Amino acid sequence: MINKNINIQINGEPFNCSGTLSLQFLLNYLDFNSERVAIELNNTLLPERLFHSTYLNDQDKIEIITIVGGG
């Protein structure tokens, strides 16, 4: 399999990565806890159970929303 680089957007910022990258791998790489984020991929909210099986494609747009608690 040939690895090709793809261009995506994360929270509106360009990001270059490998085309074989899963969403879960990206979150780990960026040091996000997948249990404390909401992910929107191309305007669709993804459930956490799909993070491992969702692979990134060229021109994907990802919004990462961090969930914080407090009181």
Rank of each mutant, 00 (worst) to 15 (best):
I65V: 11
L21E: 09
P14C: 11
N3V: 15
K61F: 03
F32R: 01
Y55D: 04
E48T: 13
H52T: 11
L26I: 05
Q9I: 04
N11R: 06
P47E: 12
R49E: 15
L26R: 00
I65F: 08
T54W: 02
I10H: 05
L21F: 07
N16V: 11
S22G: 08
E13K: 14
G19R: 01
S53H: 11
Y29W: 02
G19T: 00
G69K: 01
H52W: 01
T20V: 10
F25Q: 14
G19H: 02
I2C: 02
Y55V: 09
N3S: 11
T54D: 09
I2D: 02
Q59W: 04
N11C: 12
T44G: 03
S53A: 12
I64S: 03
N57I: 05
Y55F: 15
I2R: 04
F32W: 05
L41K: 00
V68L: 15
P47Q: 09
Q59Y: 06
C17V: 06
D60T: 07
N5I: 09
S53P: 05
N28A: 14
N3C: 08
E40Q: 11
N42K: 06
S22Q: 03
L23K: 04
N11D: 14
L45M: 08
L41Q: 00
I6W: 07
N11Q: 06
N7P: 05
G12V: 05
